Amino acid sequence: MKVRKTPLYLTLLGLIAAIFVAYFVTTERISAFDEAIIHAVQGQESPFWTAFAKFCALIGSSIPVIVISIITMLFLYFGLKHREELILFVIVVGGSALLNVVLKGLFTRERPTIHRILEETGYSFPSGHAMAAFSLYGVIVFLLWKHIRPRWGRTILLIIGALIIAMIGISRVYAGVHYPSDVLAGYLVSGSWLAFWIYWYQWYRERRATGK
């Protein structure tokens, strides 16, 4: 069976979209977009949503991500004996984190100051929480997808993964620590990174299966 090139197409589309977002950010032509969404999201401020934003900030922060990553890697290595999937997981999650550091150092965008609910340090673009969420939960969804046969099970898996990723991103805007364009760029970059390595993972698996 020939390896599908859909992940490569998604990689290309994601990179092109991320470049456009970066261009609009660096030329300051995305302010209206950012401000409109910030006001809409922060206009829903309430004690419940503030507590929820803090919870999302927690599960998307470094320590929980590291803990979840370690548990996943141990399960892949010792539980399922899936060495190749372990390598894919490490490349996607670790590479995404390093890529975020490089991009933040390259763009050096300051964080928004409109209304801060939480305090964060460091640069804003692209969102580290958004990138970490997309790479971590995205690759977990991909790895679990292959082991879930019923359509309803896969549907639930996709919904849960999408909700976690979306809520972490939205919570960053709500908390006032990121512009919406930071989150959007984080999704696009991390999504492209994930799709790129999914393609090569499938290519390697197919090549090994056919003995080529």
Rank of each mutant, 00 (worst) to 15 (best):
Ser46Phe: 00
Glu85Trp: 07
Arg111Lys: 09
Ser61Ile: 05
Gly43Val: 07
Ala53Asp: 06
Gly79Glu: 04
Val102Asn: 03
Phe48Pro: 08
Thr113Leu: 13
Val90Cys: 12
Glu84Phe: 06
Leu106Thr: 15
Thr50Trp: 05
Ile114Tyr: 12
Ser124Pro: 04
Leu74Met: 15
Ala40Asn: 08
Thr113Gln: 14
Leu99Thr: 12
Gly60Ser: 03
Arg83Cys: 05
Gly79Ile: 08
Glu110Thr: 10
Pro64Gln: 00
Glu110Val: 10
Ala53Trp: 04
Leu76Arg: 09
Thr121Met: 06
Glu45Leu: 05
Ala57Cys: 04
Ile91Gly: 11
Leu86Asn: 11
Val101Asn: 07
Phe107Ala: 13
Ser69Phe: 03
Leu80Pro: 00
Arg109Tyr: 02
Phe125Asp: 11
Glu120Cys: 03
Ile59Ala: 02
Gln42Ser: 08
Leu58Ala: 06
Glu120Trp: 00
Leu86Ile: 09
Leu98Ser: 12
Phe52Trp: 14
Leu106Tyr: 10
Tyr77Cys: 13
Thr121Cys: 02
Thr121Asp: 10
Trp49Tyr: 15
Gly60Arg: 00
Gly79Arg: 02
Met73Ile: 13
Leu118Ala: 15
Phe75Cys: 13
Thr121Ile: 06
Arg109Ile: 06
Val65Pro: 07
Val93Asp: 09
Thr113Tyr: 01
Leu103Ile: 12
Leu80Ile: 11
Ala40Pro: 00
Val92Arg: 08
Pro47Phe: 11
Trp49Pro: 03
Val65Thr: 15
Gly105Trp: 07
Phe125Cys: 11
Cys56Asn: 09
Phe55Trp: 13
Val41Glu: 05
Leu86Gln: 10
His82Arg: 15
Leu106Pro: 04
Ser69Ile: 05
Gln44Ser: 11
Ile71Lys: 08
Ser46Met: 05
Ser69Pro: 10
Arg111Phe: 00
Arg116Gly: 00
Ile68Asp: 01
Val101Met: 09
Phe89Lys: 09
Phe48Lys: 12
Ser96Gln: 08
Gln42Gly: 07
Ser62Val: 11
Leu76Phe: 04
Arg111Asp: 05
Ile63Ala: 11
Ile114Met: 15
Val67Thr: 11
Glu84Thr: 12
Ser69Glu: 06
Leu98Lys: 09
Ser62Asn: 10
Leu118Asp: 08
His82Thr: 07
Gly60Glu: 01
Leu58Val: 05
Ala57Ile: 04
Lys104Ser: 08
Ile63Phe: 00
Gly60Phe: 00
Ile70Trp: 03
His115Ala: 15
Val93Tyr: 03
Val41Asn: 06
Gly122Phe: 01
